[in-house]
């Protein structure tokens, strides 16, 4: 199994910072030599998790607050935790995967609501907890196994 030391990446809570943060996190995964498909899975799940934090948890304080990505790797794949000190999830849990309804007329076609669906579809385990004043979203991804 490839060796990956635990890593942490810190970024500002803005859409532009998400790009840099993602690039840094993906660079940390280089030792795993992920194929295109697995790398795409990781980047997509992480992007959706970070976008959610920027759009919701940090919506009122984007420049002030940082987001931290922590990653580690084991026999069951990649473990990622996204931590922010923004607003808590409204009902204390991560939103469920709602399959987008595409059986509608063109003008009613959904333009959003795909984020959590993608996270739940690609990650094998999704856990949210409020730890003090921080949100912890833990994701397990079956890559690099």
């Amino acid at each position: 199994m490839p060796e990956l030391l635990p890593f942490a990446v810190s970024l500002k809570g803005t859409e532009n910072a998400v790009r840099d943060g993602l690039a840094q996190a993906m660079a940390c995964l280089a030792p795993l030599h992920l194929n295109t498909d697995d790398a795409g899975t990781v980047e997509l799940v992480l992007a959706e998790a970070l976008n959610n934090v920027v759009e919701h948890a940090l919506a009122s304080t984007p420049e002030l607050t940082a987001i931290e990505i922590r990653g580690s790797h084991g026999a069951d794949g990649l473990h990622i935790t996204v931590i922010d000190c923004g607003a808590p999830m409204p009902d204390g849990t991560a939103p469920l995967a709602k399959t987008p309804n595409l059986d509608v007329e063109t003008h009613d076609m959904p333009e959003g609501g795909f984020g959590w669906y993608l996270i739940h579809t690609l990650a094998t385990d999704v856990k949210y907890s409020r730890v003090g004043a921080a949100n912890h979203l833990s994701l397990q991804l079956p890559v690099g196994v």
């Binding site: 997509l44 992007a47 003008h107 959904p110 333009e111 959003g112 984020g115």
Partner: peptide, 15 residues
């Protein structure tokens, strides 16, 4: 690379 926001923008363009 495209995320769900990019996907939504392409759907918006179609509409």
């Amino acid at each position: 690379f495209i995320d769900s926001s990019g996907l939504g923008a392409i759907v918006a363009a179609m509409k």
